[in-house]
Design a protein around this nucleic acid. Structure first.
Lengths: 109, 109
DNA sequence: ATCACTACCTAGTGCTACTATGTAGTGGTA
DNA sequence: TACCACTACATAGTAGCACTAGGTAGTGAT
């Protein structure tokens, strides 16, 4: 992946995953697949699992273990109330930064 | 500053500074002040200087030393051709990510 | 002589995504 | 049986970036 994208994902990937979970609960392998569907093709599995461990430890998600017919049991993550608040904060932060950047881009024309 | 903002700036602050330099050449102290004007009030001076060293070493900017009436000599940075290309890449990367996030945000409503 | 402002610089820290690899379960196939 | 492909989770080590917390210099005002 491009180095720019790698750096830009720092701070945003977390929000992206939380937003996905806000849509519906999901497990790591599934989240990785969904990210690929969204065009974020090169996000490593390991990155997603590490991120999930982090947000779980921060109490932003609830976890439930469910058997799978096709492999090892799944760890299904769902956004809880605290995670919802955190996601709202994320959108605010992102809106602000996004606004500044859009402004800068328009000035350069 | 908020932790979310700190992480989100990784990868974007570089683009912001390059975009500022695309507008007109500037020196570190000045860039810091301009960032504050834009509402990015808590960006540390040290962060800006470290960033300038980095983009200079990568050959994205040209540097010229000019005397100041009010203090030590200024190091004036200006975007060169390579920096311009890099900035364009940055906008592409940012547009892509921005689009994905906007889409995710709208799905959640 | 001290303070405030201008102007630059750096060592150490924390956080995050990546690389690379490993472990386990299920089903198909040669 | 042995091997492969897919599903599913996990982790140790690395690189890169913003932050903290200082420091050095030059100029002018009180």
């Amino acid at each position: 992946m491009g180095k720019q994208m790698t750096e830009m994902l720092k701070g945003t990937l977390e929000g992206i995953v939380l937003a996905i979970l806000a849509g519906s609960p999901a497990y790591g392998y599934d989240i990785t697949a969904r990210l690929r569907d969204k065009g974020l093709t090169d996000i490593a599995e390991g990155t997603v699992y590490a991120l999930l461990v982090r947000i779980e430890q921060r109490g932003l998600v609830d976890v439930e273990k469910r058997p799978s017919e096709k492999g090892p049991p799944r760890k299904v993550y769902s956004l809880n109330a605290q995670g919802g608040e955190y996601l709202e904060e994320f959108w605010k932060t992102w809106s602000f930064l996004s606004g500044r950047l859009e402004q800068l881009r328009n000035e350069g024309r």
